[in-house]
Amino acid sequence: MSRFFIQRIIATLFSLFGATLIAFFASRLAPGDPIRLMMGDQNVSPQVVQRLQAQYGLDQPIPVQYVYFLRNALTGDFGTSYYYIGKPVLQVIAPGALVSLQWESVALVIAVALALIFGTLSAIRHNTWLDNAVMFVALSGISIPSFALATFLIVVFSLKLDLLPVAGLTTPAHYVLPCLTMAAQPAALLARLLRASMLEVINQEFIITARAKGLRETVVIVRHALKNAMLPTLTVLGIIVGRILAGAFLIETVFSIPGIGRIGVQAVIQRDYPVILAITVLLSVVFLLVTFIVDLMYGLLDPRIRYNS
């Protein structure tokens, strides 16, 4: 196992390096001089712009800039935001990361719970009206763009029914709409995949054997069928966490949630390079960690996969 760990860590570092490399060069290739954008529509002379470029090291060749970035990043120094004047990058993104972690985990829990319930139910009641109804709702969940669903929910639940607040994230009531909007798609995706693999598992000999041994149906389903059916969905779970992180910016924008996705999009729009790079590193680490954990679970659930082979 330890060799596997070392391999994974090296692989993770490699991917991180790759991601920052892409981010760095893409950000420098993207049109838009950050200094000009920093100045907004003020009339600033070219000399001032040049001086500022030198101060931010933007007059250096791009590879040199990249080496500076790596060197500083290794010490945890991501520099100062170009947008928030005088603010260290970590101060800009840390609160956002916490906020995203909070509401996105709630959304993930809801999504997984919904998927487990409805995916399993649908598989057990395969080809009944219940199955059809669940799958129809699940499909509808992935058929409406989240930003449209979000606006629709605001109009119905906040304005027409006057039940919930419109935007922000201050009270538990504020969590309801964004979490539901967020959970809809991953829940539908997971439920469908779970149903599919449950159906494959449920007709297996070992399930039939388990039933024949007289085990309770609940035990058969949860202990044997669900456990085995979860493996293929696990691969997807990692990706689903990725999708939640990736799709969050739409929902964070509509609901005015100060999360990392929204900060990231704004940073790209403002060409706030230091913030973009730090967010890339942060999100990459999260993705890679999740992938890592999923692989580990894969190994735990499937004894045939050995990591030292």
Binding site: Q102, W103, S105, V106, V109, I110, A113, L169, T170, T171, P172, H174, Y175
Partner: peptide
């Protein structure tokens, strides 16, 4: 899960 997840968060 929903209650636990929501309660301490805000």
């Amino acid at each position: 899960l929903v209650i636990v997840a929501c309660a301490p968060a805000p």
